[in-house]
Design a protein around this nucleic acid. Structure first.
Lengths: 197, 197
DNA sequence: TGACGGTCCGAACGGTCGTGCTATTTCCAT
DNA sequence: ATGGAAATAGCACGACCGTTCGGACCGTCA
């Protein structure tokens, strides 16, 4: 890795931290540069535009997510244990040290849902990919007989997604300490209602 | 209502529309003024600061929410019908004509969760108030025998909240057409699992 | 008629934004 | 050790940010 690539990587890492707090739109070149002891122009030389920086941040976040959530969970046994592993790793994700302001995808989703562009495209693709991981895991649970044969894996993915969003909302905005217990109780009931009698 | 009050009200209305699209932080005095054919200074004369404008926007949104969601739903029969009315009115809320960019509380939650201030306080209070309306409705459903006697109303409120967040996420970011069907199926399952056998 | 409070405007302030240029430094291969 | 490329800094730009201030227009009441 050349020095330039290394610097660029350092920039993206720090940008991800800042974007976690102030959002992907609140991320500014000046603040980012001075927090890295770089000049604005020195930093900017690594990107053609601010949008490319935002795209790089989202892609870095997606990489981290795969590495910290998806891949470890896929090593869990097929079926319900794997579904549960996805859920638990996912809950931990928002508390990662490089996300001091909470999951960057959640804030980016609110900011980009009406702002077309490459950043939005990358975000949407990452979300779709992960949702399909969720429903695939649910499908495997059906195959394993952990979920009912007529269970709808996409419906399961939707509901699980909603639960984790609710968890994020309650713990970050409302600073609700019971969020963890609440969301796990909800998860258990969700799994139970998808399980055979 | 004096002319000044009327103008201020017009400003807040338009500001709510704009904030729905660009977020409460993306809301700028200049854009807002020109979209009302007002000068920046003329508009600013009605507020002491931008933060006060943001607070006014959130309070206006909370008023509308009470008027369009909470009050009509409270006229539904006690118990499960009232819970269902809250849910359905709530789903409609995000499609209101004055919220072209979706629910302003959702985007504000992502933007303000790490930014202390009066705007955050108003937002948090509005959310807490509504959540307590939800759990109170669930409590009534227990009293009416529509929900099980050992059902936890706060847990129900948490899960319902999560479902609607998930709906908003799927329909706005992912432009998923099936979101309505999905969230209603989830609601039915949620209600069923809180109902007596 | 004239003074007055309410309402809005025009101009300007200091800052910060993203983004170009050009110069300077730093690093590596020869 | 040195030439050339890569990496960073310096500086300036136009645009827009929130905010201030003096003044112009208004209907109302003395």
């Amino acid at each position: 890795m050349t020095k330039g690539e290394e610097t660029r990587s350092r920039i993206v890492d720090r940008a991800l931290e800042l974007a976690s707090v102030s959002g992907i739109e609140g991320l500014t070149i000046g603040t980012l540069a001075s927090s890295l002891s770089l000049s604005k122009s020195g930093l900017f030389a690594h990107f053609d535009s601010r949008e490319e920086l935002q795209v790089a941040v989202l892609e870095r976040a997606a990489d981290r997510f795969r590495e910290l959530v998806v891949l470890p969970a896929l090593r869990a046994p097929r079926g319900e244990p794997r579904v549960r592993a996805l859920f638990e790793k996912w809950l931990d994700w928002g508390k990662s040290s490089f996300l001091p302001g909470g999951c960057v995808f959640v804030s980016a989703a609110a900011e980009l849902d009406d702002r077309p562009g490459r950043a939005r495209d990358v975000l949407v693709q990452a979300q779709r990919d992960f949702i399909s991981v969720l429903s695939q895991a649910a499908r495997v649970a059906v195959e394993e007989g952990h979920f009912r044969a007529d269970a709808d894996p996409d419906q399961f993915a939707f509901e699980l997604y909603a639960l984790v969003l609710g968890f994020h909302h309650h713990s970050r905005l409302l600073r609700e300490a019971r969020s963890g217990r609440r969301v796990r109780a909800a998860f258990d009931r969700l799994v139970k209602s998808f399980s055979p009698d």
